[in-house]
């Protein structure tokens, strides 16, 4: 008997829920995981892309580009992967690549060329910086990592930490998770521009 009562009560509850909520399942929303940022590796069609921020990038370049040049360097990998990678004609065209870095609050940071960054640092670091910049030209299946440089402008509005970046706009300072940033650039694939977006890992 108690089982029958329970069953009736359960049926009534579920029918009420079905009327009141647009969902059929028990609690689908609660089951949906919260996302933190974006995946820092992605295969988009034939294009594989990965991006990461390295707080110790001074060990790579010989100087801290954030402090020395108001530049946020992001290591990016872009290559071809998958069926058809050998037949595809994909380019990273420096004229059309249009890299951007979007911070979590939607602030877009413009990319600087290696030459522009070199002009901001002592001469002795220039050659290494140019050498490590993301290579452009024909893309292959070979995954070489190179660096993109994003301008932290206006000066003084950003304070970069290991995991976060503080952005001051007006009187408000927001502490933004760097993992919730997004790198976007264009690849010319078989003669057409294709936008590629990837999150920033560490």
């Amino acid at each position: 008997m108690p089982r029958t009562i329970l069953a009736v009560a359960f049926a009534l509850c579920t029918s009420c829920a079905a009327v009141n909520a647009p969902f059929r399942s028990a609690d689908p929303l609660a089951a949906t995981p919260a996302t933190q940022g974006f995946p820092s590796q992605k295969l988009d069609g034939l294009i594989f892309a990965a991006a990461r921020w390295d707080a110790q990038h001074d060990e790579v370049f010989g100087l801290d580009l954030v402090r020395a040049a108001d530049v946020l360097p992001i290591a990016v990998t872009a290559c071809l992967r998958g069926d058809g990678q050998d037949r595809a004609r994909a380019w990273l065209n420096p004229e059309r690549m249009a890299p951007e870095l979007f911070l979590a609050d939607g602030t877009a940071l413009a990319a600087l060329t290696a030459d522009e960054v070199t002009a901001r640092v002592p001469e002795r670091y220039g050659a290494r910086l140019k050498k490590l910049a993301l290579g452009t030209g024909l893309m292959t299946a070979h995954a070489d990592e190179g660096w993109l440089f994003f301008e932290l402008a206006p000066r003084g509005a950003f304070d970069v930490g290991e995991r976060t970046i503080a952005h001051t706009s007006g009187e408000r300072t927001s502490e933004l998770d760097l993992r919730a940033s997004l790198v976007a650039f264009q690849v010319t694939l078989d003669g057409r521009e294709q936008s590629v977006c990837v999150g920033v890992g560490r």
Partner: peptide, 30 residues
Amino acid sequence: LAYVHLAALACFARLRFEDRVEEILAGIPE
């Protein structure tokens, strides 16, 4: 909250993060 999930789905689809779209769809099979 359902709206928030749908909005996130649209944004992830726009940015082409298929895995994230799949995660949201798994939570809202309707």
